[in-house]
Design a protein around this nucleic acid. Structure first.
Lengths: 231, 231
DNA sequence: CGCGGCTTTGATGTTCATCAAGTAAAGTGG
DNA sequence: CCACTTTACTTGATGAACATCAAAGCCGCG
């Protein structure tokens, strides 16, 4: 189960500079008292669709998926959160309850920062507010950009795009372990499990990628890029 | 062409309460000096994809579309902005240039508020910052919610959803004039012009709607809702 | 060891894009 | 104001892309 770990002082957090550069010591001290650090194992659910939003979730390490039930048998993945993301910055400030669930797809380490504290600090420190706004804007842009490029692509293009996304933006390596099942890939890019498998097999037969279970190696990124763009 | 009109004092703007409730007089005065009010005729382009972002655009009256070129022959509509929307709050704070174009699809009246002024005010006034954040969060949520519900639907469902959206959220009437062409509807909900026409004709033959050019009357909203939900 | 979930492949059917062709409507220049 | 051009709308026919259905192997787990 999830594990509360002794939270280090924010002041010494290695990610501080990325996020809270606009906070002077005073603000950091405050924020420090408003946070809890947790570890989650792969597969654990951090937030259930409909839960009250009490905190903003900052992802230190690992990967998470934001997902939504569509009906009894189907889900949809909205986006995948990477380290340094404020997971669920979407809708934190416009809804009192989460519109989606959040689950760890790799062992992860997160900070929960109380929404109230965050709001106080936003009201008190304009530079911090500006930082948060920029952050939100960027997060939104990324999600939308992703969805829009995908919606123009055929299935081959979507798979190619997704594999490149994992290689370039998430793992920065051409060989990596897919953190999600074929079915979840399908949920992420709006297609059926069978077709995810079929097309990945095609790519394998064409020598574009190697597959070993969840381990993927991209042999020919240029070709993958071409397929993604053509799609 | 677009027409600069004598801008009334923000203090007496009838929309003030909706937007700038967090601004005391001092802040309003400042903002007042940072804005220009314009009128645009249906069809006019307010912003071209790639233009530098210098202002935030507030839509008083009318309707606008946010759209993007996909290739030489195709565009895609990202969303339709209604009165009281900050058009293009998306990416204003994460990009220096617009990622999309903005065009009037009805005669419209807008305020341009300088981005710089806005940022100064955000830094100075925490409550205002909080307001803006809530606004952004809501705008984003709406766009995403829309796109996600659409992506699960078949073509009939998408048309039904869209007609209901116009009737309920934009015009609040069961009879209205579609402000966009069949082709633009296709661009909005990711299908082909021919199928937009075909399905709308089906709905007409089934007695669900009446069509007279761009005038649409919804006869059976319940059925439309059913089709939208089933899709 | 047996059950359920994930993966894989093949066969079949449906949905939708594409192509084609024609009418209507709307803008454009003389 | 009329001929001309372009753009929007409409319907039908065809084929491609993709979902669905079915069946079987695999793997981890209780």
């Amino acid at each position: 189960m999830s594990e509360l770990i002794k939270a280090p002082d924010c002041q010494f957090c290695s990610f501080k500079s990325l996020l809270f550069s606009s906070l002077e010591n005073d603000g950091l001290q405050k924020l420090n008292r408003c946070k809890d650090q947790f570890r989650f194992k792969k597969g654990e659910v951090i937030v259930q669709e409909g839960d009250e939003i009490k905190s903003i979730i900052y992802l230190h390490k690992g990967l998470m998926k934001l997902h939504k039930r569509v009906n009894e048998t189907q889900s949809q993945i909205i986006s995948i959160a990477k380290p340094f993301d404020f997971v669920g910055l979407l809708s934190v400030f416009s809804n009192s309850n989460f519109l989606y669930s959040i689950s760890a797809i790799e062992d992860s380490s997160v900070c929960f920062i109380s929404k109230e504290c965050m709001q106080d600090e936003i009201a008190r420190n304009g530079n911090f507010a500006q930082d948060i706004i920029n952050r939100m804007s960027k997060t939104t842009d990324d999600v939308l950009q992703n969805k829009f490029s995908l919606s123009n692509k055929n299935l081959r293009g979507r798979i190619a795009y997704t594999l490149l996304d994992f290689a370039e933006n998430i793992y920065q390596k051409n060989e990596f372990e897919l953190p999600i099942s074929r079915r979840e890939i399908a949920e992420l890019i709006d297609m059926r499990t069978e077709n995810v498998i079929r097309i990945m097999s095609e790519f394998r037969k064409d020598g574009i990628i190697k597959i070993n279970g969840h381990i993927i190696e991209i042999i020919n990124p240029d070709m993958l890029r071409k397929i993604s763009d053509a799609g």
